[in-house]
Design a protein around this nucleic acid. Structure first.
Length: 859
RNA sequence: GCCCGCUUGGCGGAACGGUAGACGCAACGGACUUAAAAUCCGUUCACCGCAAGGUGGUCCGGGUUCGAAUCCCGGAGCGGGCACCA
């Protein structure tokens, strides 16, 4: 229905194929460094090859493509590559469930998704395509790892994982559902493994401070990264433990409240907890219970706050008090020292804990002016400003003064030290999985850990693996892990862990600069192209992927591969794509194509003719079947329509609701533009005709609309206001449709308008743009045509309409010369009948004038 | 639970602190057509009014300002992230 074959109608399918072939044959999007033009690197987050592209991809790559094409028209030497984030869990799940090899599954998906992406008409340099699962990619990642190992940026340490005791497998957090393994259903346990990690914490301070150097990042992403790194100033100090020789080290940012302490809490993984558990079975049971929560911080934080009194007493350093030491399920071993002191009066979580276990609540900070003896804590902890009370040598001080005094005293007595602590933890990269990049080290019984010599790279994944047995197939492989030690030649064992897939995506943007080089990156190429000028992707990557990439770039700088710290100069985070969901009377989910919306507004199931419940709009997901396949849309309407719709309604950083009606509107507009221009060709002067000497008033009006559109759309594209740019193209189309065809200079003005609307819409609807450009008699390609500039004389009107308010309420408007002086404005404003009526003879207090916008008469 | 956002007509949204609702969708009325599709013209925040015009209105409650969708404080709802999904 949508595809029209009647003569004179726009044939999207044919046209799009034609221009995609032309661009490809002329290799217009292949980037080279040998250019006198300034470079511009546009990158969208590369996709995981799940098999089919989804609307989120279409949105992401459309946004990037508009920028790439726009920058290209502006004269930049644009790099716009594409690749595949091809390692990961879904391939292993497919192997297990569908008995297909992960490599086969992945490469098939890449081929299928590549075809779909190509049909979108993206201005991508496909000659630079990379896939992270390809040995030619990951061999360089292994080399980078060896360089980082040599540079001291890699550590081997114990860290905890979710362990499925039945499947004998490490589980990802998403595979733990309500504390149980997603397949076995067995309660998970935490288990400690020797793991490789990158020492990202060495850069904690740098990564934090340098956020200030990223002005073209969204404010909220910078805030999220700051909070994630989490710098805090406090003290690390020690409690003596009654009857024990060891001591308890805690970190606190509220050491001013130490006199209000009523307990200490330690993590279930804390050495003291383990020691206690050795001869206290109930403690051991409590710890085991905590272990069953898994490693997810979200789960731990939302669990009921519980504790177990170990019976150990921590001795207050300045008072004759023994604080009970609890093992608590909410204290994280990874943060600080894994131990805290609790001051219930001034921390809500501590207060809840104290109320639950009947611990004393002693206020030590009172709001200034409050009576210290009458200041009591009820349901809410007091964490506001105030003056210290009940605190010996701190009494009467402000919180800041008290912190300082306490720190001085502790440092003088050797009890503790001022500490800057970060929330950021080192990045554990070991994964007990097959479908990932092998970590290139060998464990030798006599030499210890030995790096694989670079000449032996890549360490290639073996093909002959089975997924029948639970656990890591690399570990079960008959021969793969058995190797000779590169140092001493004795029998040794290959590392069977593979890298976290975040490693793969932490440097792909650099690899794109020299994708076929036999080193990880060619220095001249990365020096030329990096940083990425505009990076575009989902907000869900705001923290981890972006932070890891920032770290990796620093690591690559330290190891001599690149010369910069920050990989992404500009960042744009797009919203998600939503759709209504449908359920039949049995509550079964239905696909959009299974339902029909009737004229009376009700929705029915096509197969059963029974009514359907329309759910609210939510993120497209297979489980709710509220997905629209981009391939179907592109087949029936063409890529330009899909792109235009995606850009037209919602601001790109907000969620977008996919609607059929909206797509049809976009399709109608493409046709309208086609009809308007091809239907007018006979009455237009030839391409390149000189401007006539005179223009009629309507011709000037049209030219003003054209040039205002150029100025506004340029500004909108610069600001990522793609929906605004679309609206202004509609306005220009309306102006062109309304303009009379007769009059001095009119034909020339109409050609100018048509040419401009094609050039302005070109980055968004590139195929239609290219076709109309040719129809308008242009010889070159639209993609090679420079971005238009507006004539300033035609952008600014000499008459303006100003609002007249009386005490802030609109009472009328006046049309006056631009930049009229105050006296004229006052006179004209007060002459308006409605204004006189509203003033009603009251005295005028003042007149506020906003130039060319508002006259506000205050009475 | 913690961190970060978002909330404007029937719908998507527009609006340097300055005429709230541009532009699109949907709906309704009309033209063209044997008819339908397509296309074209018009209306469309609510209430009062024949009209001129008035009153209310940007999630809720306060505040700052000549003027608040926009800034500040408090709250509600929805969403993203929380370190092994990518």
């Amino acid at each position: 229905m949508a595809r029209e074959s009647a003569a004179g109608r726009y044939n999207a399918k044919e046209t799009e194929t034609k221009w995609q072939r032309t661009w490809s044959e002329r290799r217009v999007f292949e980037a080279t460094e040998s250019s006198t033009r300034p470079k511009y690197y546009v990158l969208e987050m590369f996709p995981y090859p799940s098999g089919r592209i989804h609307m989120g991809h279409v949105r992401n790559y459309t946004l990037g493509d508009v920028i790439a094409r726009y920058k290209r028209a502006q004269g930049f030497n644009v790099l716009h590559p594409m690749g595949w984030d091809a390692f990961g869990l879904p391939a292993e799940n497919a192997a297990r469930d569908q008995k297909v090899h992960p490599a086969r599954w992945t490469y098939d998906n890449i081929a299928a998704m590549g075809r779909e992406l190509r049909s979108m008409g993206l201005s991508i340099d496909w000659s630079r395509e990379v896939a992270t699962c390809h040995p030619e990619y990951y061999r360089h990642q292994q080399a980078l790892f060896l360089d980082m190992l040599a540079a001291g940026l890699v550590a081997r340490r114990k860290s905890v994982v979710n362990w499925d005791p039945v499947d004998q497998t490490v589980l990802a957090n998403e595979q733990v559902i309500d504390g149980r393994g997603w397949r076995s259903g067995a309660p998970v346990e935490k288990r400690e493994l020797d793991q490789w990690s990158f020492r990202i914490t060495e850069y904690s301070s740098d990564l934090l401070v340098s956020i200030a150097d990223l002005p073209r990042w969204p404010e909220r992403v910078r805030l999220m990264q700051e909070n994630w790194i989490g710098r805090s100033e406090g003290m690390t100090f020690r409690f003596e433990l009654a009857g024990r020789s060891d001591r308890l080290e805690v970190f606190s940012t509220r050491h001013d409240t130490l006199f209000g302490a009523s307990f200490c809490a330690i993590s279930p993984e804390h050495p003291l907890a383990r020691d206690v558990a050795k001869h206290d079975p109930r403690a051991a049971e409590f710890i085991a219970e905590c272990q069953r929560l898994g490693t997810s911080e979200a789960v731990i934080e939302q669990a009921e706050k519980r504790g177990y009194d170990t019976g150990v007493k921590a001795l207050h350093p300045f008072a004759p008090i023994g604080l009970p030491v609890y093992i608590a399920n909410f204290v994280l071993m990874e943060y600080g020292t894994g131990a805290i002191f609790g001051c219930p009066a001034h921390d809500q979580r501590d207060l809840d804990f104290a109320r639950k276990y009947g611990l004393p609540v002693r206020p030590v900070v009172a709001p200034s002016g409050a009576d210290p003896s009458a200041f009591l804590i009820g349901e809410a902890a007091y964490d506001g400003p105030g003056i210290l009370i009940n605190s010996q040598f701190l009494d009467g001080l402000s919180i800041e003064q008290a912190k300082s005094r306490m720190a001085d005293r502790m440092e003088a007595e050797g009890l503790g030290t001022r500490t800057i602590n970060f929330r950021l933890r080192d990045w554990g990269v070991s994964r007990q999985r097959y479908w990932g990049c092998p970590i290139p080290v060998i464990h030798c019984p006599s030499c210890g850990v030995v790096p694989v010599p670079k000449k032996d790279l890549p360490v290639v994944l073996p093909d002959d693996v089975t997924f029948e047995r639970p656990g890591n197939p690399l570990d079960h492989h008959a021969t793969w892990k058995h190797v000779a030690c590169p140092k001493c030649g004795t029998k040794a064992r290959r590392e069977t862990d593979t890298f976290d897939t975040f490693v793969d995506s932490s440097w792909y943007f650099a690899r794109f600069c020299s994708p076929r080089a036999d080193v990880p990156v060619t220095k001249s190429a990365v020096d030329y192209w990096l940083p990425v000028d505009q990076y575009i992707g989902g907000i869900e990557h705001a923290i981890l992927h972006l932070l890891y990439s920032r770290f990796f770039t620093r690591a690559m700088r330290r190891t001599g591969h690149v010369s910069l710290d920050e990989p992404f100069a500009g960042l744009f985070t797009q919203g998600m794509v939503l759709h209504e969901s449908y359920r039949d009377e049995q509550g079964k989910w239905l696909y959009p194509e299974e339902v029909d919306r009737r004229d009376d507004g009700t929705v029915i199931c096509i197969a059963t003719r029974r009514p359907v419940t329309v759910g609210r709009r939510e993120v497209m997901s297979k489980s709710k079947k509220n997905v629209v396949a981009p391939g179907t849309v592109i087949d029936s309407y063409g890529a330009d329509t899909a792109r235009w719709f995606i850009l037209s309604d919602s601001p790109p950083d907000r969620d977008l609701e996919w609607t059929d009606a909206g797509v049809q509107g976009a399709w109608r507009f493409a046709n309208r533009l086609w009809r308007m221009i091809t239907g007018s060709l006979a009455n237009l002067p030839a391409a390149g005709s000189a401007a006539p000497a005179t223009f009629s008033d309507p011709a000037v009006t049209l030219r003003r609309a054209t040039h205002r559109a150029i100025a506004q759309i340029t500004a909108d594209l610069d600001a990522f206001h793609f929906n605004g740019a679309v609206a202004k193209i509609y306005q220009l189309a309306n102006a062109l449709a309304e303009a009379p065809q007769e009059g001095a200079g009119m034909a020339w003005a109409r050609r100018e308008g048509f040419e401009m609307i094609v050039r302005l819409a070109g980055p968004m609807m590139p195929h239609l743009g290219e076709e109309l450009w040719q129809q308008l008699g242009q010889k070159g390609l639209l993609v090679d045509t420079a971005w238009p500039a507006a004539d300033p004389a035609l952008v600014i009107d000499d008459q303006v309409t100003m609002a007249v308010q009386v005490s802030g309420k609109l009472r009328g408007t006046i049309t006056v010369a631009r930049d009229a002086v105050q006296a004229v404005l006052e006179e004209r404003a007060l002459a308006v009948d409605n204004v006189k009526k509203a003033i009603d003879g009251r005295p005028i207090r003042k007149v506020v004038i906003v130039p060319n916008r508002i006259v506000n008469v205050v009475v």
